[in-house]
Design a protein around this nucleic acid. Structure first.
Lengths: 210, 210
DNA sequence: ATTAACTTGTTAAAAAAATCACAAGCTTGC
DNA sequence: GCAAGCTTGTGATTTTTTTAACAAGTTAAT
């Protein structure tokens, strides 16, 4: 197989595979079968083989997958075999936590610029970055090669932030603010809200009760 | 319709509906049709009606849904019409950010106890909470009515944290650590990793390029 | 060199989820 | 009181996703 439409669920699982594979590698596993990987990920082994088949043939029949090689292949398939520069808008609680989050670099994402419209925050230094007004986005984005926008504003400011990002020709947006945004259809948007997961847990617990 | 198996995707969308409905209510909308709500959520209107139908009949034919009433009904359906007490394990970067996150209370979740096995952290005050050793979980959980466990440890400590939670009869777990955990099947687990969404954005951008 | 034991990639079948389409029901205006 | 205009709830249909099944390819042992 190769190319055609790829389910979003597949992308989510690929992220899981990477995580588990990296832990396997750390534990000294060089080769793994889809069956064993499947158990470690709590999915069906056909599922794994099918997910991978969208992107190519990465295994060896009768043997399995070489772990390091597979990690590299999946990362290439997802386009995360390079550094993506991100623009953060909104340096409140969430934004600050993101700036402090060490995993960004390790995972291939770099918050290269931080924006906030609060006059009290503008000018503040954050590591080697200075917080500036979002109006500067349009000029800084191309200069700095910013490609992904991270919205971490209060909900009522999210749309404005999105407008700034679109105007600055950003290529994709991840929105931590609890509100929907409208952008042109060629710009992918992902919404992040970990309370979704808490709701799901609460629901599953409640369900198990009756 | 009513009860039967409910797709996980439905739960995810109900969370979106709540978010959008709350914003609609704030903007003074008292009634809304599935068609308009669908547009605001970027989904199909039948989808909304079907999602709601799993839980009951909340609308009025010819009229639509009363916004406040619908919010209440969805929250009841999900079991988030009450406060859930949570135990946090791991007070590092992520754990601290969670403790500082103001939305917990507003959304019906309360981090009522914080645990960490680092001797430098044990004894530290956090608001009105003191960080204690995870070995105390088993005794504190029933006393305090802790029902949900939040794992925010480094990846190699996640399984141990999970064991403590299971041992303390916690009813559900949300895992922020980037590693899979094994728990008895009756305990629901949700994995949270917002890099999944960054991967997805990177992939969608890359895909659009060629 | 042949057999036995594995494991992948892929086609076919099954299951699940999303969408359509419409009868049933509410509201308003005349 | 009735017709016209909406909008829900739901059975039927379509689409998508997952799972099963197996031919094709690999390795190791005899």
């Amino acid at each position: 197989m190769k190319s055609e439409h790829i389910p979003k669920a597949t992308i989510g699982r690929l992220a899981v595979y990477i995580q588990v594979l990296e832990n396997l590698l750390r534990d000294g596993n060089d080769v793994i079968s889809s069956e064993k990987l499947a158990r470690a990920c709590s999915v069906n082994s056909s599922q794994i083989r099918k997910d991978l088949a969208y992107f190519g043939e990465f295994g060896v029949r009768g043997v399995g997958y070489y772990v390091q090689e597979l990690i590299t292949s999946i990362k290439q398939s997802l386009g995360i075999d390079r550094v993506w520069k991100c623009a953060l808008i909104g340096v409140g609680n969430m934004g600050t936590a993101l700036l402090r989050h060490h995993d960004f670099e390790r995972r291939g994402f770099q918050i290269a610029a931080a924006f906030d419209c609060d006059p009290d925050k503008i000018g503040l230094e954050f590591g080697d970055m200075e917080i500036v007004c979002p109006t500067h986005l349009k000029e800084q984005a191309p200069e700095m090669g910013l490609e992904i926008g991270i919205i971490a504003t209060p909900p009522d400011r999210a749309q404005r932030a999105a407008n700034h990002l679109v105007d600055a020709n950003i290529r994709g947006i991840i929105n931590f603010a609890p509100s929907r945004i409208n952008v042109p259809p060629h710009i992918p948007v992902e919404y992040v809200d970990f309370f979704d997961h808490l709701y799901s847990i609460a629901f599953q617990i409640t369900l198990g009760n009756d």
